[in-house]
Write a protein that binds this DNA or RNA. Sequence first.
DNA 1: TAGACGCTTCGATTATCATCGAGGTATGAA
DNA 2: TTCATACCTCGATGATAATCGAAGCGTCTA
Lengths: 226, 226
Amino acid sequence: MKSGPDIARVAALVGDPARANMLTALLDGQALTASELAQEGGVTVQTASSHLGKLLQARLVGVRKQGRHRYYDLGGRDVAHMLEALMGVAAGAGPTRVRPGPKEPALRKARVCYDHLAGDLGVQLYEGIRRLKLLAKDGEAIALTRKGRRFCTDFAIDLADLERLRRPLCRECLDWSARRSHLAGSLGSAFLARFYDLGWAKRVPSSRVVAFSSTGEKAFLDRFAA
Amino acid sequence: MKSGPDIARVAALVGDPARANMLTALLDGQALTASELAQEGGVTVQTASSHLGKLLQARLVGVRKQGRHRYYDLGGRDVAHMLEALMGVAAGAGPTRVRPGPKEPALRKARVCYDHLAGDLGVQLYEGIRRLKLLAKDGEAIALTRKGRRFCTDFAIDLADLERLRRPLCRECLDWSARRSHLAGSLGSAFLARFYDLGWAKRVPSSRVVAFSSTGEKAFLDRFAA
DNA sequence: TAGACGCTTCGATTATCATCGAGGTATGAA
DNA sequence: TTCATACCTCGATGATAATCGAAGCGTCTA
């Protein structure tokens, strides 16, 4: 009966609206201060502090002290993955369907998932580079082909840098809106950073939306969704 | 702020211990009656009924009436996936670490995940058939190679049968214990069924453990983990 | 040193929800 | 019909936990 990990404990933590909002706010990978998270959660700082204490104890978030601020970030990639999985279920569940707010279509199109691109464009990116044979499945891991490595160099992504990290280079991540995979891992992260650098896209403040400029989107589609 | 699906609602549902236990009991894909689920959850039937009503409304479970019984099963594959993701986080979280009960190692080695094989042996199966080039990634979906199709026929798996279903043939599923992918989809399901048929393994009653006989395990490793 | 700021801890209040007894409604058996 | 089973609904009870005011503790600025 009591087999496997204690799933109810962590689910209950995410089950509180205030905490859920905080976690979702952290889902883009950037760290936020306790007061900012209180704002995101729609509660006072005292309440938020209590919540953060619990999340911290369960390792769902981490902290870095910096001066008189305390920066909280997500506990890890598996936490992000779990949250996205929850969204996948929540999206198609309940009689109280999520009413598609004004931001919804934008989120569906392109958003940040921890530190890489998700949404329609994220899926297009992944499928594009698969179609161009820049990536190949080799056994368990996805790996860059020779052609892929050349492409990255051309695209000003320093592979040597990425490979020094202990983090896997390529990884699939399931998209809750598109229900398809997109590219995660350090390479996914590097791609997104490059899009920012090139001025193709930028983050919309205080949301997970990634806004592509019209020229940026054209360039993006040109490269990857040919 | 209020962007994306209502994650707290579903998390709160899973957050109750009784409901969590019920869901975990359903994770192996077989349907259970309301009374059986009450037992699994450690509550009376009235309480269980209340819980099941909520889970049903949120589509986390489904029902089939059959005579005077009501068979509940998991709402879908995405629900199963979410639960596994939660386990992944719960496994490595909290100061109250899960104490590895007697069943734990067995669960880690081989268990049922909805309807296919998970755990170490599940991962070995997947990696084995990848290594043998029976599967290939083609764009977005994983597909059987010609060699793979021949293998299945030899292994007495009726592909034509499987392909009539609307369900995808091959699919990856992330393992919470091994943190690697294993094979899901109707093919994953067919493989497991075949292992039962061959007498290589059988289910341990009222648990998710899949017990391989010693000869069965040898045959399994011979084929897939060569 | 004083004061402002960011955050946490403590304590009291309140609302939510799981729980189960009692009673009600289908289904199946005798 | 009558009884038993499987399940659900209703209502009362109780425990848990979210919430915020007040107060305390570091840290930065002047």
